[in-house]
Amino acid sequence: MSLQIGTTVAQARRAKNLTQEALADLLGVSAAAVSKWETNASYPDITLLSPLARALGLTVDALLGFRAAPTDEELKKITAHLREIFDGQGFAAGRDALEDVLREYPTSGAFKLVAGGLYYHYLASALLQADDTGQTAEEISGRCLQLFEQGERECTDVREKLSAQMLRINTLTMLGRYEEAEQLIEALPAKQVVDPDVLRLNLYLAQGELDKAEQLARRSLLSRVTDVSGALMSLSTVARRQHRFEEAAALINAYTAVDTLFGLDRSNGEMLRLMLALDQGDTAAALDALDRYIDARLAYTLDYRDNPFFAGVQTAVPSPREIAAAQQLTLRSLEEDESYAALRGEPRFQAALDRLRAAIPPDA
């Protein structure tokens, strides 16, 4: 990344009412050299940095635009810019840009958490371009884990450290490194009896800070709904694998009821019904669930900005490119995963895949 010393020199020189010639005389260089600095045609010699900074009333850090870590506002802008590159130019370009920022801020734990999250977020895009999806998934997951580990060491904020630990646990689990994941879980701080957000929410209400109370309550609701859905999904999976099919069906019904009530993505519930029907050997029910699943995937946006329960909570939504990548991965899974082998000879199965295939943009 190029330095912007020139702009800093020009602004500081004008603020001190110095001409280029006057600044050059102070430093023992030519006015032409100062002009080249200010147009970024060249940089000052390293031995001139301290005298130049003193002449302009700056620190060397200020002259170089040095910061050990981006500010919160800069972090938001950097993240938004990287998402634009991933979305518009593809995974390879996004990866190169992300690694450039990591080199610029090599000790920023907060950015490393963002970087790992972006890699994980755009994993689907990477897999679509990969010859060996298994190897690519392992490589990217390994890079995520490395970034989360470094981020945890370098973050000073307690919440950021806890977030890094949670991300590490999820990534280790995904990589099949179960013992390490369990050790990290055991090392987590004990759950607090009282949730600080509950106390904070009561405080906001007492102070009349209604906007803050509303946003905190919405975030809390989304978190708890996600927890409930995750628990129901896990319970239904356990029941299904133990062949307690009636119980599994009741749990799946509860899962879909929660999603329907809060206006969330319906595709996971339909996938659970599809897997249950396959386990029971009910081809007709499986094909019905597959049709509903395809419908849900085609309606998939994960955009909850207008959701009456969660309005204002979501700061970013999947781009059309991300959605298309997710649809392509769904198509590949249905085509290749042996879990669906019993359905592949069915005309309805092929028709469902054709419907999904036709909806994916040709340039995705």
Rank of each mutant, 00 (worst) to 15 (best):
Y178C: 08
L210G: 00
L210M: 06
A164S: 02
S163M: 10
I169S: 03
L201N: 05
Q183S: 15
A213Q: 00
V193P: 06
G208L: 06
P189R: 01
L221T: 04
A181C: 03
L175V: 08
N202S: 09
E186S: 06
G208R: 01
Q165I: 08
D211M: 03
I169R: 10
L175G: 10
Y178T: 14
R200C: 07
L205E: 02
A213S: 01
I185G: 12
I185A: 05
S220T: 11
A190C: 12
A164T: 07
L205G: 03
L188C: 03
L184K: 10
I185H: 07
L203T: 11
N170R: 14
A213D: 00
E214W: 05
L167A: 11
A187S: 14
Q207L: 15
A190N: 05
R219D: 01
A217W: 01
E214N: 05
E180T: 09
R218A: 02
Q192S: 08
Y178R: 05
A164N: 09
R177T: 09
G208H: 03
L205Q: 12
L222Q: 08
A164Y: 10
V194W: 04
S220R: 10
L221D: 03
M166I: 15
V194P: 12
E180Q: 11
R177G: 10
P189L: 11
V194H: 02
E214P: 00
G208W: 08
D211I: 00
L199M: 15
G176A: 08
E209P: 00
P189M: 03
E179M: 10
V198P: 09
M174K: 15
P196R: 10
R219G: 12
I169M: 04
A217N: 02
E214A: 04
L188M: 15
P189V: 03
R168P: 09
E180A: 14
R218W: 08
I185R: 08
L205Y: 02
E214K: 02
A187C: 03
V193K: 08
R218F: 11
P189T: 01
T173Q: 14
Q165N: 13
K191H: 10
P189S: 04
L167I: 06
Q165F: 08
S220F: 13
L188D: 06
D197L: 13
G176V: 01
D195G: 01
E209I: 01
L210H: 11
G176Y: 01
L216E: 02
L205W: 04
Y178F: 13
R168S: 15
Q215P: 06
K212R: 07
A187K: 09
L205R: 09
V193M: 03
L184G: 11
